[in-house]
Amino acid sequence: MLQIKDLHASVNGTPILKGVNLSLKKGEIHAIMGPNGSGKSTLASVISGKEDYEVNRGDILFEGESILSLLPEERARKGIFLAFQYPMEIPGVSTANFLKTALNAVRKHQGKDPLDAVKMLHLLNEKRAMVELDKSFLNRSLNEGFSGGEKKRNEIFQMAVLEPTLGILDETDSGLDIDALKIVAEGVNKLKNDENAFLIITHYQRLLDYIIPDYVHVLYDGRFVKSGGKELALKLEKHGYDWIKEEIDAQ
């Protein structure tokens, strides 16, 4: 589904990603871990098409086609969803209107008619209940005045409504208490099926107790320096990143 080949990317001329390779298949969950500043959010942003980042080398293929020349909205309509590490507050735009517009844009791309108002409301209510957001959130301005946990749950809510084929979660678990973490994990597990895939960026292995990854990759200084199974996450939890840094710096 997603293939990243020798990806090099920079911001304002500063190289950040320095040769990332990844192959993610349908039905898989991959976790990406790594110290702060290693480039995890950058990788997520480059996949979703944020224009601040310049791709200097390599390619990203989604379902077999390069997406590098596509706008963020075109990637989103093809089924790529990024749950942001820091969701923006957008005063004056209600969560419901925002999601209606987004879902209908995606549906249009899929050749489907827009959902009528009744079905839309029904869908929104069903999905927001899943992440235990109160009804009132639908009419509130997008993320404005939401707590950290509410913002993260709102991201998962949006993902549940848009049903992407590739879901990327950028530290959605950071700052969540254990109950909220379970809600987020449950949301992902419910969405998960044989036709879609997830990239879970996280700092802590505790999320991976609830969302079981097929692979764990460690990003360090813009490169994957280690890959393994779920046990790698446990080792990182126990020993931190220093042993990896030492290994790399020694080379």
Partner: peptide, 9 residues
């Protein structure tokens, strides 16, 4: 970008 990333042109 936030709106675009959800599919809104």
């Amino acid at each position: 970008y936030y709106l675009q990333a959800r599919g809104i042109g």
